[in-house]
C-alpha cells in the first residue's frame, strides 16, 4: 500500500528509477562500462559524442561514459558511508541528549551548535585540508558536518517520545533506561530518520562533488563527477561541451533524485502529512 504511494506519483517513480539506475551502474561498473575508464587512446583524444564513445572522450582519449560510471561508485560509496556514520553517531547522541536531558543534553547540544555555527562546506573543506585528502578523510569530513542534523532530529523526537504514555508504561514494567530508549522509543523515531537520511544523501553527493571540484576531494586518476566537471570546465571555451555537461548532469540528476525521493518518503511515512499535497 505504501509502496503504491511511492511509485504512484510519476515524479517520485522517476526519482526512484534514477537512483536505482545510478546504484546499478555503481555496483556493476566493471561489467556495464563500455571501456576501461583509465584506458587512453591517442587516436581519439577530445572526440565528440559518437557511437564508439557515446559521451565523448577527454584529452587523453579516455571514454567519458566509462569514467562517469566508475565515478558513480566513488560518489555513492563516499556519500553512503558518510551518511551511515553520521546517522549512527547523530542518532546515538540525539537519543542520549533527548532522553537524559539535564547537563548531558546541554553539553551535547552546545557541541552540536558549535559544529552548526560553521558553514558545512567550509568545515568539510577545513577538515580535508587539515587531515589530507584521502577517501577516508573525505568520508569523515562529510560525516562530521552531517552529525548535527541527526542529533537535533532525534533529540526532538526523543523529547516527544519520552513523555508519551507508552514510555511511562515501559518504565512501570521495570525496563532499564537503555532498554526504554532502544526497544521502545527509537523505533518510533525511524520514519523521520529515513526521510532525513535520504535528503542528506543527496546533499552528501553534492559535497563530495564540490570538494573534488576544488581539488580537495577525490584525486585523479580516479574519476569523480565533481573533479570531471572541474576538468571539463576548462574546455567550454574551446567547444568541447560534452566534458563539462555530462558530469554536471550526473551530479544534478542524482542529487535531484534523492531530494525528490526524500520528499515523497516524508509524505508517505509521516502520518501528519498524509493526504496533504
Amino acid at each position: 500500500m505504501r509502496w503504491r504511494r511511492l511509485t504512484g506519483n510519476r515524479l517520485s517513480l522517476a526519482a526512484l528509477c534514477g537512483i536505482l539506475l545510478v546504484v546499478a551502474a555503481a555496483l556493476l561498473a566493471p561489467w556495464v562500462a563500455p571501456h576501461d575508464p583509465d584506458e587512453t587512446d591517442a587516436e581519439a583524444t577530445l572526440s565528440s559524442v559518437s557511437l564508439r564513445h557515446p559521451l565523448g572522450t577527454d584529452i587523453y582519449g579516455r571514454d567519458q561514459l566509462s569514467r562517469l560510471i566508475h565515478a558513480a561508485r566513488v560518489d555513492l560509496l563516499v556519500a553512503l558511508s558518510a551518511t551511515a556514520i553520521a546517522l549512527t553517531l547523530g542518532a546515538t547522541l540525539g537519543a542520549l541528549a533527548g532522553y537524559r536531558g539535564g547537563w548531558v543534553d546541554q553539553l551535547l547540544m552546545r557541541a552540536v551548535d558549535a559544529i552548526m555555527a560553521f558553514p558545512a562546506f567550509i568545515l568539510a573543506m577545513g577538515i580535508t585540508a587539515a587531515l589530507g585528502n584521502s577517501t577516508a578523510n573525505l568520508v569523515a569530513a562529510i560525516a562530521i558536518t552531517h552529525v548535527p542534523i541527526y542529533t537535533r532530529l532525534i533529540r526532538g523526537e526523543m523529547l516527544k517520545a519520552r513523555e508519551t504514555e507508552y514510555a511511562e508504561a515501559a518504565r512501570t514494567v521495570g525496563n532499564r533506561p537503555r532498554q526504554i530508549v532502544l526497544i521502545h522509543l527509537l523505533p518510533n523515531c525511524v520514519p523521520p530518520l529515513i526521510v532525513q537520511a535520504t535528503l542528506a544523501m543527496g546533499f552528501a553527493v553534492l559535497t563530495v562533488a564540490a570538494l573534488s571540484f576544488i581539488g580537495l576531494g577525490i584525486q585523479p586518476p580516479q574519476s569523480e563527477w565533481g573533479q570531471m566537471t572541474a576538468e571539463g570546465a576548462g574546455y567550454v571555451v574551446s567547444g568541447e561541451w560534452w566534458l563539462v555537461l555530462f558530469p554536471g548532469l550526473a551530479i544534478m540528476a542524482t542529487v535531484l533524485a534523492f531530494n525528490l525521493l526524500g520528499d515523497t518518503l516524508r509524505d508517505v511515512l509521516d502520518p501528519r502529512m498524509r493526504g496533504v499535497r
Binding site: 504514555e165 507508552y166 511511562e168 508504561a169 514494567v173 523505533p187 518510533n188 525511524v190
Partner: peptide, 24 residues
C-alpha cells in the same frame, strides 16, 4: 526497584491505546 516494577507491582493505564507502543 526495577525488579519490583512489572514483576511484583504492575500498573494498568487510563488510555490503553496510547499506553501501548505503536510500533511494537
Amino acid at each position: 526497584m526495577r525488579a519490583v516494577r512489572g514483576a511484583r507491582i504492575s500498573m494498568v493505564f487510563q488510555s490503553p491505546r496510547t499506553a501501548l507502543n505503536p510500533v511494537l
